[in-house]
């Protein structure tokens, strides 16, 4: 197992050092496996959420090319140990090659997860006006695992974070997914909670029970699991924290809540994250900070990736990593504490 690297991000200068913190706990944090290939296929989104670490919005134009999609498919084919394709964005459905990517990955026998914002089904493509109401049926046909953000089970926190009217549209979209068989045990529909402010997420288990009860009773909506995630102090959320002069308070909260039991399950230890241009990162957060992964003395891209070499890389850490180790931990699948 690799020793923790000292390649902290520039934002870590002079502040708390994540690498030193895990080393002080006697923990290693090198790659364990590459079980998931996560691809950020576009920064275009029909929404512009306050806490979006991607800075996605309707004005972004970045798209993963067909060449890059095909290279990702080749990697999935080569990597027997890669079980999952995790598609994210922006709204990944707004990439012109999205349907092809999903279909081909399924033909390879891979489990496909889509970070689906729910509203894109009703809003369609904000640049072209293309309708997207076929999405729930398409997901069901391809047995896609749907992972959808819903910051709260009522309107106030959801609309405050994701925009006016988002809660109502999200509920309508969830009902469409339920009608396709999602949330009833066979087709997986998981929701993502993240705090509507500068505070840590509640216990995933207790919140899941509340979400289940309220969504069922108030809206007749069913889902499988709730993932509680921490807001990452980067990009749009970092700007918001700095504008309100509470960035240092939030960082202190994350650092003070460091939990060594989350290190084993850090998502960066089990995945590779691919940017729209084919560059490879340890996670989606590093991708947004342009902290490209390196191995064998060179930066990694999908175009010349050697999976064995990538397993030997040193994961790049920064102060934002305290967001993944605070409290019960936070990853793409929610809490990570052992």
């Amino acid at each position: 197992m690799n020793e923790p690297t000292q390649t902290e991000s520039p934002t870590g200068t002079g502040g708390p050092c994540f690498s030193r913190r895990i080393a002080r706990c006697g923990l290693g944090a090198g790659p364990l496996a590459i079980r998931t290939l996560q691809a950020n296929v576009t920064k275009l989104c029909n929404q512009a959420c306050v806490h979006c670490h991607v800075d996605a919005s309707p004005v972004r134009t970045e798209q993963m090319s067909l060449e890059c999609v095909n290279r990702c498919l080749e990697i999935l084919d080569e990597g027997d140990a890669i079980e999952n394709l995790d598609l994210t964005g922006g709204a990944p459905e707004l990439n012109p090659h999205f349907d092809y990517f999903v279909g081909e990955a399924r033909k390879l026998g891979k489990h496909v997860m889509v970070r689906h914002n729910l509203t894109v089904t009703l809003d369609g493509n904000p640049r072209t006006g293309e309708a997207k109401r076929y999405i729930p049926e398409f997901f069901a046909e391809n047995r896609v695992e749907v992972v959808s953000s819903l910051p709260y089970y009522s309107e106030y926190f959801t609309d405050r974070q994701r925009g006016k009217g988002v809660f109502e549209k999200s509920i309508e979209s969830l009902r469409m997914l339920n009608r396709e068989g999602y949330g009833a045990g066979e087709l997986e529909l998981n929701l993502v909670y993240n705090p509507a402010g500068a505070f840590l997420p509640p216990s995933q288990k207790s919140l899941e029970a509340d979400f289940r009860r309220r969504l069922e009773e108030d809206h007749g909506v069913r889902f499988d699991s709730l993932y509680a995630m921490t807001n990452m102090p980067i990009n749009r959320f970092e700007k918001e924290l700095r504008r309100k002069n509470i960035y240092d308070d939030y960082m202190e909260k994350l650092v003070n809540a460091f939990n060594p039991e989350t290190v084993e399950g850090l998502m960066c230890r089990n995945m590779l994250s691919v940017g729209h241009d084919g560059r490879i990162y340890d996670c989606d957060f590093n991708q947004m900070l342009e902290m490209q992964a390196r191995a064998g003395g060179k930066p990694l891209t999908v175009f010349d990736l050697d999976l064995g070499e990538a397993m030997g890389r040193e994961i790049r850490f920064g102060v934002h990593c305290f967001g993944c180790t605070a409290g019960a931990g936070s990853g793409c699948g929610g809490e990570t504490a052992a």
Binding site: Y152, S154, Y156, F157, P195, G197, F199, L200, P201, P202, S203, S206, L207, D210
Partner: peptide
Amino acid sequence: TRCLETGADPE
């Protein structure tokens, strides 16, 4: 803060 971090909302 404790209320927010245990899942309560402003209402």
